[in-house]
Design a protein around this nucleic acid. Structure first.
Lengths: 241, 241
DNA sequence: CATAATTTGTCCGTATGTATC
DNA sequence: GGATACATACGGACAAATTAT
C-alpha cells in the first residue's frame, strides 16, 4: 500500500471548512468589524479552491450575518456585526419542530426576567435608565399605533436585560422576547395602557435601587401577560419562602 | 412565448430565494421529515437555474439543518430536523465580537441553572432521573478519560434542563453549556471527582423532590466552577431573604 | 451624464469522488 | 469488482451591479 497520506482527510465539505476558517478569524478578532475580505479571485489563489467553493463559503457566512457581500466597484465581502435575529430565526424553527408551545416561551421568560431585573437594578447606570425611559415615553406618545407600542414594549425587556451589562443574558433575553412577540403579536394590544404602567413602575423601582420591588413587579407583569394569552400562571417557581 | 412569468423579479440573491422557497415547503409540511428532494439536475430544470445556484441554496439549508445531503447511489438531499448546535456557533461569534467574557457566560449560567433545577425537581419523571444517573455513571466509569468526563459533565446540565420539559429552557441551557465547555475545556479536569460528587448530590435532591436543597447545591456547584476559573463569585443575586 | 473599471452574480461544461447495487 | 447514480469540485465565460472618473 501507499506510505502515509496524512493530509487528505476531508473533514466535511470544503466550503464549510473555509467558512469555519473565516468565521474563526472574525471570532478571534483578526478580522475586525468593517474590514473587507479579499475579492473572490484572490481568495481563490490564497485558499487554492475554485470560485464556486469560495462563493458557497461566503454565502454561508452572509446567511449568518457575519459578512455582507455587495457587488460593484468597491464591492466585496465586508465584516459586519452579526444580527441577533438570526438566533431567533433558528430557535424558532427548532422549537417548531419540537412542538414547543408559546406557553413554554412565556414560562422561560417568567423564569429569566425577574433575575435579569434584579441584576439590572444593581448594575444599571444613568444612561441605561434614560434609554428605558425613552422607550416607555415613545410608546406612550404613540398609543394609537399598536405596532409601535408593541415594538417598544418588547424593547423594554431587551433594554432591561442589556442593563445587566451581561452580553449573554441580553442576547438570550432578546431572542426569547423576539419569539414571544412574533407569536403573540395579535394577542397583544388589548392591555397597552396597563403594560406601559407596569413598565414604568418597574423602571421606578430600578431607579430607586429597590431590587425586591423591581422583581416583584416584574413577576406580576410577565404573569399578567400569560393570563392574557390564556396560559397557565406561573406556579411552583416562586423563590419566596 | 410565455404568458406571465411571475417569478423573475430578482429579490436578492437567487440562491437565497430558492432556499426560502424550499424552506417554506418544509415548514408547510409539503416536505416531511425524511423525504428526499429531487436530485440537483431535476431541481435545475424545475427551477430554471444553474447547478451552482442550486448547490448554494442546498448548502444554506444544510447549514441550518433543514436537509442533509449525502453522496452516492441513493444520495441526495433528505429533509431532517435542524440542529441545536447552530445556535451555539452563531452565539459564539456574536459574543466574541461584542467582547463578552467567559465570566459573563458563567454568570448567565449561575442565574439560569438554579431556576432550571427547581422546575426540574417538580417535573422530572423516572426516565429523566435514569438518564441523568446514566450520565453520571458513565463519567464515573471513565475517570481516566478527561474528555469523556467533561462531555458527560456538560451533558448533566443539559439533561437537568431537559427535565424541566420546557423546550426553550433546555435549548438555551444547552447552548450556554456548550459555549462554556468549549471555552473552559482546558481549565476543566482539575476537579473531576468533586464535580461528579456535586452532580450526584443534586440528582439525589431532585429524586427526593427537595427543590430547595437541589437549588442550594446547584448554586454552590456552579459558583465553585467560577472559582476554578478565577472568576468573581456570584453575589447580589441571592433571592433568599 | 456617460463611460470605464472593478467586483459580484449566474451559467455552462467537465472531471472526480463516493456510495450503492 | 464493475456499473450506476449521485454529489463535489474545478475552470472558463458572460451578465449585472456599483462607483469612480
Amino acid at each position: 500500500m501507499p506510505d502515509v497520506v496524512f493530509d487528505r482527510i476531508k473533514q466535511g465539505k470544503l466550503a464549510e471548512v473555509i467558512a469555519a476558517q473565516i468565521r474563526g478569524e472574525i471570532r478571534s478578532g483578526s478580522l475586525a468589524l468593517g474590514d473587507r475580505l479579499p475579492p473572490e479571485r484572490e481568495l481563490i489563489e490564497q485558499l487554492g479552491v475554485s470560485r464556486a467553493t469560495v462563493r458557497e463559503a461566503l454565502m454561508l457566512l452572509e446567511a449568518d450575518g457575519f459578512i455582507q457581500v455587495r457587488a460593484g466597484r468597491h464591492g466585496g465581502a465586508y465584516v459586519t456585526s452579526p444580527k441577533l435575529e438570526r438566533l431567533a430565526t433558528i430557535l424558532d424553527v427548532i422549537l417548531a419542530v419540537e412542538q414547543t408551545t408559546t406557553d413554554q416561551l412565556l414560562e422561560a421568560r417568567s423564569l429569566m426576567e425577574p433575575l435579569a431585573v434584579r441584576l439590572a437594578t444593581a448594575r444599571a447606570d444613568e444612561s441605561d435608565f434614560e434609554r428605558i425611559q425613552g422607550s416607555i415615553d415613545r410608546a406612550a406618545e404613540h398609543l394609537d399605533a399598536p405596532d409601535i407600542v408593541a415594538e417598544e414594549s418588547a424593547r423594554f425587556h431587551v433594554l432591561v436585560a442589556e442593563s445587566t451589562h451581561n452580553g449573554v443574558i441580553s442576547a438570550l433575553t432578546a431572542t426569547t422576547q423576539q419569539l414571544i412577540y412574533s407569536r403573540a403579536f395579535t394577542a397583544f394590544g388589548t392591555e397597552t395602557a396597563a403594560t406601559l404602567r407596569a413598565h414604568q413602575r418597574i423602571l421606578d423601582a430600578m431607579r430607586a435601587r429597590d431590587a425586591e420591588a423591581a422583581v416583584r413587579r416584574m413577576v406580576r407583569h410577565v404573569d399578567a401577560f400569560r393570563v392574557v394569552l390564556d396560559a397557565p400562571r406561573s406556579i411552583e417557581l416562586g423563590s419566596e419562602t
